[in-house]
Design a protein around this nucleic acid. Structure first.
Lengths: 182, 182
DNA sequence: CCCAGCATGTAATATGTTACATGATTCG
DNA sequence: CGAATCATGTAACATATTACATGCTGGG
């Protein structure tokens, strides 16, 4: 596993679920895998070009009367093989990066009021995330055929576990910092 | 806040706690803030150079009889001001990237046994992390003067909350995937 | 003498982000 | 006609990772 290229595999994975244009992929990355993977949109077209070059995807032009024409990409057999191969490979951990915790860590240089302000911002972000993920789960459960949605639900459940834990931490951190005299 | 440069502030922050050489910082980033921030070691020296250029740190050469000579860096007043300024700035969220969840999401292309294998690897990583963080907490509580360690403890508590939640998810995910026929 | 640890760096490569550039079509 | 959405891309910049390169010192 010399190179990661995880973002390329993200696109490839989305294409295993059905053909899509670059523009489609742009939204799908956000809506479908956005809660655990972010895509830099500017690199979607270059990545598709590379995938084409490797023969992992192919594209055909689709004319549309109501909208501009578009290129629709789909996975080739080699692409699907490569994707499955990647799925089976060992994962190398992504090191953490949390700016909030850095500001907390260096709290002696700051004030407790300032820290509480940051943590409250964090809490509001988390609350938003939690709501989004809970409504996604509800949506999937309604529209579910029952089988392939298990995996999506598992990823959402992961995010919810994580978010709830972070919210609990926020609560205790805010309480602690508010009580303390500086 | 045009640019982030959070890594530079990480170094600056560590230097507000006391002078250190590049080599020291290399270990400190790992041991002290490693659980929420990773540093690419290759960039420590270039970053220190930039911090020097801005007048945020200064350095003096320290001769050592038993070890090679070294440059010891310390924060200037301007550096401390810049750091405090940065501490007060609003945080912009770092988008998530979780390879395990990507492999779970595309589980239909894989097998449940393979997924379980990945999740078990993840669980072992988490267990290791949890142990490390718990022993760090124990260490700090022992050696504590009681005041400035609150912030370190808070960041560790965050990691522990997070890790425990992830472990709970692993358990339920493994149970679910093991039961299911494919 | 060799290895481990201390100490500082560079080069090459890969990856990611921001902003910009262009143009079609539909709807109000 | 102007705004919104669909659609594809590039250029410039910023950042990160891997591997390499060098040299000191102490201890086995």
């Amino acid at each position: 596993m010399s190179k990661q290229n995880t973002s390329e595999y993200a696109l490839l994975g989305l294409l295993t679920m059905g053909p899509a244009s670059g523009y489609d992929l742009r939204r799908k990355t956000e809506q479908q895998i956005g809660h655990f993977w972010n895509e830099s949109y500017a690199s979607i077209y270059p990545m598709l070009k590379r995938l084409l070059g490797r023969g992992w995807v192919e594209r055909r032009q689709v004319e549309q009367s109501d909208k501009p024409d578009k290129w629709v990409y789909s996975v080739t057999d080699e692409g699907r093989d490569a994707f499955r191969q990647w799925l089976s490979e060992e994962i190398s951990p992504i090191p953490p990066r949390n700016i909030l915790l850095m500001k907390v860590y260096f709290g002696v240089e700051s004030s407790n009021a300032e820290l509480v302000r940051h943590i409250e911002w964090y809490r509001s972000e988390l609350t938003k995330t939690l709501g989004e993920n809970e409504s996604r789960i509800a949506q999937i459960k309604q529209a579910s055929d029952g089988s392939s949605s298990v995996y999506q639900l598992l990823t959402l459940s992961h995010s919810i576990h994580e978010t709830r834990a972070m919210l609990a931490w926020c609560k205790s951190a805010i309480e602690l910092l508010s009580q303390r005299q500086e």
